[in-house]
């Protein structure tokens, strides 16, 4: 994380602001890239043909949103890097995604639940971002809202069907909730960059959607015969570049092509 945000005096407000914007854009972009990559791992491996089309559809939506955010981040940074440099050529500690999105797919229950948690959050957060009125972010939010709404619809149906399905599917879904739920608190975390955005009015405070998010999750869990766990201490660290062990393996695969064939395009 760039320490200059706190070190710079008030006189440099403009550059502090753009550093904060750059970092916030990276955080959101990384969330989408990493989750998109995780989801894309199931391309060709989904349990049935219909899901094999649905899952990469969602992966492509997430990747598309990540591209828009990286492009904008690259412009804000103005150091000659482009979207590919940001997506593929950073070291693990420079990625600012939350830990939830990098968690392994494990099984279909994990995959759907992870996507459901994240999509339910973004479905509420994008409209708030749009309302905050940062012009480029608002435009990205408008496009992404539609796509993410479908992700919520699709994944919530699977959460319900698996949670309230067979003995095995219910067991697996409950297990996934136990493992993944502690990672959801990080979605609402406000670091110094986000705080700058909130103070300056170009970013919405995710705290404002915490209750609506919990209500949405609770409603689906109720239909799914699942209970919302009480987690006093959540897992976090991703926004500071502190990732889980699985993240290195994910990056190896994600970055392989650009590392092996630098600058390759298609």
């Amino acid at each position: 994380m760039n320490p200059s945000v706190t070190e710079k005096p008030v006189a440099h407000a403009a550059s502090t602001s753009s550093t904060a914007l750059f970092n916030v854009l990276l955080q959101i972009a990384d969330d989408h890239l990493i989750l998109g990559h995780r989801v894309s791992e199931l391309c060709g491996h989904a349990p049935m043909l219909e899901e094999d089309l649905s899952i990469p559809n969602m992966a492509l939506d997430l990747l598309g949103q990540a591209r828009l955010l990286y492009s904008y981040a690259a412009e804000v940074e103005n150091q000659g890097r482009d979207e590919d440099d940001l997506a593929y050529l950073r070291a693990d500690r420079e990625y600012l995604n939350c830990l939830l999105v990098e968690k392994p797919n494990a099984d279909f229950a994990h995959t759907m639940l992870k996507q459901f948690y994240f999509a339910s959050f973004m479905k509420l957060y994008w409209p708030e971002i749009q309302q905050a009125g940062e012009p480029r972010l608002s435009a990205i939010a408008a496009k992404a809202s539609q796509e993410i709404a479908y992700h919520v619809r699709h994944t919530s149906q699977w959460v319900i069907r698996l949670g309230d399905g067979t003995e095995e599917s219910a067991r697996r879904m409950a297990e996934a909730v136990g493992i993944l739920h502690p990672y959801t608190q990080e979605l609402f975390e406000v670091d110094e960059n986000r705080q700058t955005g909130i103070d300056q009015g170009w970013l919405a405070d995710p705290a404002s959607i915490k209750q609506p998010w919990l209500d949405a999750i609770t409603a689906v869990f109720k239909s799914a015969a699942l209970s919302v766990p009480d987690v006093p201490f959540g897992q976090s660290g991703g926004r500071q570049g502190m990732h889980t062990e699985d993240f290195g393996h994910l990056l190896t695969e994600l970055q392989y092509l650009q590392r092996a064939y630098p600058g390759s395009e298609w």
Partner: peptide
Amino acid sequence: SLHATDDEMALQAARDVYTR
């Protein structure tokens, strides 16, 4: 055609398979 557990999932699968 496609496989789906119920009407709601069938509609979603149809959207994913046939309206790309």
